[in-house]
Design a protein around this nucleic acid. Sequence first.
DNA 1: GGGCAAAGTGGTATCGATAACAATAAGGGA
DNA 2: TCCCTTATTGTTATCGATACCACTTTGCCC
Lengths: 361, 361
Amino acid sequence: MKAEPVKNEDEPKDKRLKGGDAQKLTMAEVAKYVGVSAMTVSRAFRQDASVSEETRKRIMEAVDALGYVLDLSAGSLSSRRSGFIAALVPSINNSNFSDTARGITDALENTGLQLLLGYTDYSAEKEEKLIEAMLRRRPEGIILTGGSHTDRARRMLDKAGIPVVETWELPEEPINHVVGFSNSEAMSLLVRTLAGQGYRKFGYIGGTTARDTRGSQRRSGFLKTVEELGLGPGRAISFGVPPITMEQGGQAIVSLLERWPDTEVVLCVSDLSAFGAIMECKRRGMSVPGDIAIAGFGDYEISSICHPSITTINVDCYGIGRQAAARLLDALQGSGEATGDEITLTGYRVVLRGSTDRGAS
Amino acid sequence: MKAEPVKNEDEPKDKRLKGGDAQKLTMAEVAKYVGVSAMTVSRAFRQDASVSEETRKRIMEAVDALGYVLDLSAGSLSSRRSGFIAALVPSINNSNFSDTARGITDALENTGLQLLLGYTDYSAEKEEKLIEAMLRRRPEGIILTGGSHTDRARRMLDKAGIPVVETWELPEEPINHVVGFSNSEAMSLLVRTLAGQGYRKFGYIGGTTARDTRGSQRRSGFLKTVEELGLGPGRAISFGVPPITMEQGGQAIVSLLERWPDTEVVLCVSDLSAFGAIMECKRRGMSVPGDIAIAGFGDYEISSICHPSITTINVDCYGIGRQAAARLLDALQGSGEATGDEITLTGYRVVLRGSTDRGAS
DNA sequence: GGGCAAAGTGGTATCGATAACAATAAGGGA
DNA sequence: TCCCTTATTGTTATCGATACCACTTTGCCC
């Protein structure tokens, strides 16, 4: 089925070939054209290799004239370097993670490394499958989100013998490098800050916890801290499969207020749900923060723009990506030396805004 | 610098290798372990190949026991099929495009094809570079955003001899397949719809047009239609480099209203800028849609949730991705037959919401 | 029962580049 | 002037899988 028809090669058969040129141009042909060896052409493509400037120029002209494009899949086989870095994020449709992806991409620019991106949909099983799919491409390093993986995934990673960076969390048993922060402590800080402003009756909105480990860490940070502050048991609602949407945030706050009508402030697992919650409250004639204060997590663009603007935790999403990639690059440079701490803490900070402003109406 | 130290291989040197197993496990070794030929192992990994069920089972057990992971870079060299599909989007941090990316990913699931994703940052030069980088991996097909490419990019694509799908627009000179819609007509429809509601003085907010071709098409659709309806020259503001942010949307509407204070309705190049514009108006004490109506483009999640909800054009972003991938798969199946139209139109529709509701305060 | 098709398996060449080493030319110091 | 180092280029083997062809075995049809 895949085989070329043996005869009549003249027949076009695929109109895409209008560009002509059977396109099976190889390095050897470029070499012949220039009158050098294939090896020299190969060298011309790398900056470190020693080729006379004049030869390189002639080769590059030929490359241009013939329209030759280097074939990295062949190259990586013999050099045993794929030039790939794999990265898995829960979802690319979440701007926090797409910022991280962009950070990785930017950090990889001009390194000759290419990003292989995958989406796990917050599922460890899907992550396992993706890890296998990625490893089949023999990436030189891999960046994961979170520290919760299946056993088989851990085994595969271990066996692959490549540097691994876990991000966005502080796993209890890191595989290798970590670039992240404690979601639990970040949420705890937010609770304490708001408690410091006088709030006493705390509610929490998040997704069902099974899949989203960061979400469940935020929740437990919330519950623990409310308890510690002597503010009674936290009032937590689980609503929907992560990632919880704006709309679900709106639905969740309705449930929460039905159950605990006197709640003063509601913390949400993300800004998106917080925004949905705020809009739903306004739709129902409640004033935010007048009747109820609401805060989010993640400092999405929307939170500084909307009205009221949303109190949140700012996380350096982009920086997480950049630093994760940088860690990987360090490991690949293979100074071989201890690279110092294997855990890189990334910053976060409380951003107080209108949605929890006690002075406001 | 890259060279391995010749001696003392015993020294660990890279602590990642704690997992042991020099990890240079090859198919031949699996074969030896099972007592079959490498060829048979290779067949066991493919569903179509003929291997007895019993042999396959034994092989797979060995694969599991040894922790072998297939090496596709080697495989693709000999099979001359990379298993890659390349896709370039302007930005992954824009949910419209990340939806498209997800559509592609979903459509590719279980096809054995893997997505290579790149970001062009709305730059044709960067696109050209990325196209070259992608072609070095010998993708079996490529999906582009828009129809505006450098000459060299077109030449490379032509020469590559692989199916190309341009998306999100209707290029005047398509390279090959197209999956998209007319941004100009979509915007035109929105103008006509709002004119039908009685609006007369139309404003427009977009980015500087040089880079974002879809944006400039929307703008020209706007200007043309306002003119056609006899509503005088359109009042268009260019503000900032695409993609224009929420904040820039807010700044832009200020400029616009300064210059043309009696504007009745403002159309924005995207929902994000529309949202920013609305928030800025509210901040300045203007009522939307009471004092001014505002509409967006793209139907982002936020637009149905926020208050007022935003009138917009709903585009099937996810579907564009799915269909683009489907087109590519068709072409790869290589029925060789004419695949019918090479242009697939995707739907869009006006979604009227609160932000242009004449009845509202 | 002979022959023939189909299924299952193995052997060898090969994909297109790069690593490693060899070879040659050019330059520099004693 | 001669040897040695450096710069440049060529030759050959190889990376790890798959294509292709050959071969054996089994089963079935007339």
